[in-house]
Write a protein that binds this DNA or RNA. Structure first.
Lengths: 255, 255
DNA sequence: CGCTATCTTGACAATCTTCAAGGCCTGTGG
DNA sequence: CCACAGGCCTTGAAGATTGTCAAGATAGCG
């Protein structure tokens, strides 16, 4: 633990542990998954000198929308949600991030989103000024970040299509498929892990928790998926889900 | 959507005029508005050598979702809409662009969106390979593009919040305000130009054309705006619109 | 000056939300 | 080991916002 329990000296880092590692980057397990992979040799050493290794407990936020964007982050473990709030509390989750993901691009002078740990999070924190200085000397990294931002733009536009034009069933199907990609299991179907709550899924898909729950139940009834626990399900009929996600099943029965 | 007459010889460039200018960049009116501003001297000359100046007529598309992302573009005049389609024709407009805007970042190997001219468009086209090569030698430009991508990510997240969590009135209010910023008129109110159709506004806001029309009429009745023609209106009560856009007027009368 | 496309308005229907209650799972303590 | 408590999830019924279908008005253009 070792959290800085509520002391006024470090308000943004409640429930957070700092560990200044010696040369953490060279031996980082997450490096191959992340933008840090673009660096090597002395550049990597330099990155290590400006990296601050931290831990964040479940439920703790480590980026707050509207705060000065003083840091970049790189997740080295766990998962988190990114979200925006309206004054009355309505929430839009803009993305889920996990090991290897880089945070802080969607910011000008202030963060455009908040970030909160869904699972215990380990991350590296980089002071923005120092990191930008490093970028000035490392075109490869700058390039990599631009490509990353481009990729996130593609994802963001896909999400706009989902939020603006897809039905509830199409949204949930799209979500399950995006979560299943990569962890394919032959035979019984693909396992999908849902480390977030129904509320967070709803806030990601622009729906209510009840609609998400009902839609998942309908998928279960229609044998498109099987659910072991609320946090884990199996894709039984990927073809049907694909069709739904692409908008091909708008008027289907599905009970 | 443009009526592509389907000739196989130049499928992507129907209705398009190519003009190879001599050193067009150094004298470009749009340069100060665009990322090209990051270049100077010999770098700018080099940019000029790879730039192809083009014109696009109203209704013609110059980027098609799913096509190989072979080019970057820079608008030097006119305006266009960016959009994604579902197989059944449902459309989500992801943004409107105008003079100075750079296009093509939201693409990996293939374009993630289509682009179609709303007003007669002038633009510069850059072959992707040549442009990337130039970027390798111009860190300032690479940096600028990353910042641009970051800014677009901020906008995209704001749009996700709008599409996922705002009511129809809040969406229309947000849209009008985002369009009015920058062209302030003292006295009578701020003039807002709408070079796009109601359908395109609806596809941008995740609504139907009827809902957009009804909402604008309600704003007019409530004296929040005045409408001269469908393509131009005046913001009469910015304060009320601001409140609506931020989510502060969910249960208001407004008949 | 009339034609056509776009926009506006109205009535009705559907999806999704809201409100409400019950069930399940997990973790804790006796 | 079992009982209990609390949060989360599921399910149901009613209601509201928005979509759909249809017709009429307006504006721009030849």
């Amino acid at each position: 633990m070792g959290a800085n329990a509520g002391s006024a000296t470090e308000p943004p880092w409640l429930g957070v542990t700092l560990r200044h590692g010696l040369d953490p980057c060279a031996t980082c397990d997450a490096r191959s998954l992340s933008v840090c992979d673009a660096l090597a040799g002395p550049d990597l050493d330099r990155l290590a000198t400006i990296a601050v290794v931290m831990s964040v407990e479940i439920g703790q936020s480590f980026i707050t929308e509207g705060d000065p964007a003083d840091h970049f982050f790189n997740l080295t473990g766990g998962s988190a949600k990114l979200y925006k709030l309206l004054p009355d509390g309505r929430c839009q989750v803009t993305g889920f991030v996990q090991t290897g993901d880089f945070l802080g691009l969607a910011a000008s002078t202030h963060y455009a989103f908040s970030a909160e740990a869904l699972e215990p999070v380990q991350l590296c924190r980089f002071a923005r000024g120092k990191f930008e200085a490093l970028l000035r000397d490392c075109p490869a990294m700058e390039r990599r970040l631009r490509q990353l931002a481009s990729h996130e733009l593609v994802m963001a536009q896909e999400q706009m299509l989902l939020l603006g034009r897809k039905s509830a069933r199409e949204r949930v199907a799209s979500f399950l498929l995006s979560r299943s990609r990569g962890c394919a299991h032959a035979g019984t179907g693909e396992r999908v892990l849902l480390p977030m709550t129904r509320t967070e899924i709803a806030d990601y898909l622009g729906l209510t928790i009840e609609t998400v729950s009902r839609t998942l139940s309908a998928f279960k009834t229609a044998r498109l998926v099987a659910m072991h626990s609320p946090a884990e399900l199996l894709v039984l009929d990927r073809k049907a889900l694909d069709k739904l996600a692409a908008g091909g099943g708008k008027g289907h029965a599905l009970t």
